[in-house]
């Protein structure tokens, strides 16, 4: 490394002088995006923290700083434990359902090159639809009087899917899976295709069957992809709003009232912008905490692999 040091330093000189000449032009180039993002991204992020210590009804211009009043109101709100529980339930169940199925589909598609293109075209379609459109479709499809179950006369399908607490959660998880499993299976497909074929050939010579190959080669090799995909799923599930709002509006009762829904209702329907901002801060903190946690798990995996190599 030491022998390399002088050329590196010499190499830096022209870069620096060039940076001096065109640096100001580059700064001008980045400014429009920077200003735009600061104004509508960073300022609101700081703003939501300030607003969580304030009282505002969202309609009149008076915003008063009232210390911890809004936080107290938010934390003692009887709906909060339920909102946290529902958010956790949606997060955990949607991860548990989506991850194994996406890995299964992704592994299959990676090997079946004949059908991959065909499947990918159709698997992509749910990603193009708005959550509002998907929610409306399922609402009509699952209607106990006019939906698929009633029309086909199949008793098992003919339930009040969105009218009972447990069924509503299950339906929500199904719709989420319908929307996102194709996307995650495409991610896994890409990862599985990166695995060198020689590893499988070696395992085959050793007499490992398909199942053992899957658990001993495929799964460990797609570790990082599992973490990436899980981060997207888990953090993404915190922000489900459109889908829940159009599908159930948080009901029946408060069975599907997740944090984001609770925030919207408190702020824009009950005019309690202060407590709603406090919930938004909780949402951000939970999101950052979960991404850091998952990244740490990923980091450890990274280290152990480097040790192995």
């Amino acid at each position: 490394m030491t022998t390399l040091a002088p050329p590196v330093v010499r190499g830096q000189e022209p870069t620096r002088s060039r940076g001096g000449r065109s640096g100001s032009v580059l700064v001008w180039m980045v400014l429009p995006a920077f200003i735009m993002f600061v104004f509508f991204g960073i300022v609101p992020l700081l703003g939501v923290i300030v607003l969580s210590f304030a009282t505002w009804n969202g309609i009149t211009p008076e915003i008063e700083l009232t210390g911890l009043t809004s936080w107290k109101a938010a934390l003692t709100n009887p709906g909060l434990p339920n909102a946290l529980w529902v958010t956790f339930l949606i997060m955990a169940l949607s991860w548990l359902v989506q991850t194994p199925l996406s890995i299964l589909l992704g592994t299959f598609m990676a090997r079946q090159s004949r059908y991959r293109g065909f499947l990918a075209v159709f698997y992509f379609i749910p990603l193009l639809l708005s959550s509002a459109a998907i929610a409306i479709t399922y609402k009509s499809l699952l209607d106990p009087n006019f939906g698929l179950g009633a029309g086909l006369g199949i008793e098992a399908l003919n339930q009040d899917w969105l009218g009972q607490a447990n069924l509503a959660i299950a339906t929500l998880i199904f719709v989420v899976s319908w929307q996102f499993i194709p996307f995650h299976s495409l991610i896994y497909q890409g990862a599985v295709r990166q695995i060198p074929q020689s590893m499988y050939e070696a395992a085959q010579i050793d007499g490992a069957g398909r199942v053992r190959q899957f658990f001993n080669i495929t799964l460990p090799q797609i570790k990082y992809t599992i973490i990436t995909s899980s981060t997207l799923m888990v953090v993404g599930s915190l922000t489900f709003f459109d889908l829940i709002w159009v599908l159930t509006a948080g009901g029946p009762g408060d069975a599907t009232r997740a944090l984001a829904v609770q925030m919207y209702q408190l702020g824009f329907q009950a005019s309690l912008m202060g407590p709603a901002s406090a919930i938004a801060v909780i949402l951000v903190l939970v999101g950052i905490g979960l991404s850091l946690l998952l990244r740490r798990i990923g980091g450890r995996a990274d280290q152990s692999q480097m040790e192995g190599a």
Binding site: P44, G47, I63
Partner: peptide, 17 residues
């Protein structure tokens, strides 16, 4: 860092702005 900011969490200040 902005990749981690969910739109849902900042809609109230955006509304105010």
């Amino acid at each position: 860092m902005g990749l981690a900011i969910p739109l849902q969490a900042v809609v109230i200040p955006v509304y105010l702005i």
